[in-house]
Structures are given as structure tokens and as C-alpha cells.
Amino acid sequence: MSELNLVFYGIGLGLIAIGSFFEVVGAIGVLKLPSFFLRLHALTVSCIGGSILPLLGVAILAIGLEEMGSQRLFITAICLISVFIILILAPSGSHSLARAAYNSNTAPKQPLEYDALSRGVNKD
């Protein structure tokens, strides 16, 4: 293993380690925070920090594995495309969850200090 590959390997493993830390933080947040809307914020932490960072880590780590031949480039490209798709789909999902929960009054909104949406807005 040459030195440059070792650097790629180290960066990849480091990103995966940081990602697992954010995953645990997100899980604790989902259990600990008081209301539905606040839990959605913790969910965003484990989406961006917990799944996109490790994917980037795997992409960089795959570049460094020279014995895999040209297939490693495909692994890198698939990881990058998954990052792109998650960046589009995950916020759409949490936005529609939040909007549905707000408009149907299913989830309790407290604690909430100020609500600009409740004063005479058409909700469509």
C-alpha cells in the first residue's frame, strides 16, 4: 500500500467514525427531546451527519483500495450519487411529515414560543 492510498484510507475511516458519533447523537436526541417537531431536528442530524458523512467516507476509502482494480471507481461514483439522492429526498420527507403534522393538529406543538403560521394564512 503506497502512502497516498494510506492517506485516503485514514480520511475514509475518520469520516465513518465521525458519522457514527452523529448517528448516536441523533438517536439520543430522538429519545430525549420533548415534542414531535423538535425530534425532527434530531432526525436531520442523523441524516446528514450520520448517513452522508459515512457515505463520503466509503467513497474516499474505496479510492485507496488499489487491489480492487477499476471496480473501486464505480463504488465511489455510486456513493456520490447516493449522497446526491439522499440530499434531495430526506428533506422532502421531513418537510411533508412536519407540514402534515402541523396542518392536521395531530402532534402537540408545545413547547413553542411564537407561531407566525397561525394568524390567517391559507394552508395549501
Binding site: H41, T44, V45, P91, H95, Y102, Y114
Partner: peptide, 29 residues
């Protein structure tokens, strides 16, 4: 809207296209 929702701490709840307003749920306003 995607970027704001992707940033932890802010979620876009509703978009009003007539008055050009985004309603954002902010965890630490």
C-alpha cells in the same frame, strides 16, 4: 427550501407563494 431543511435546527413548514413567505420552524430562535 431543501438547503434550509437539510440544515439541522431549521425546517421549512409551509411556503406561501402569493406573499413570498417561508414558514420556518426554528429550534433556537
Amino acid at each position: 427550501a431543501l438547503t434550509v431543511t437539510n440544515t439541522p435546527g431549521t425546517i421549512v413548514l409551509n411556503i406561501d407563494t402569493n406573499s413570498k413567505l417561508m414558514y420556518i420552524h426554528w429550534i433556537n430562535a
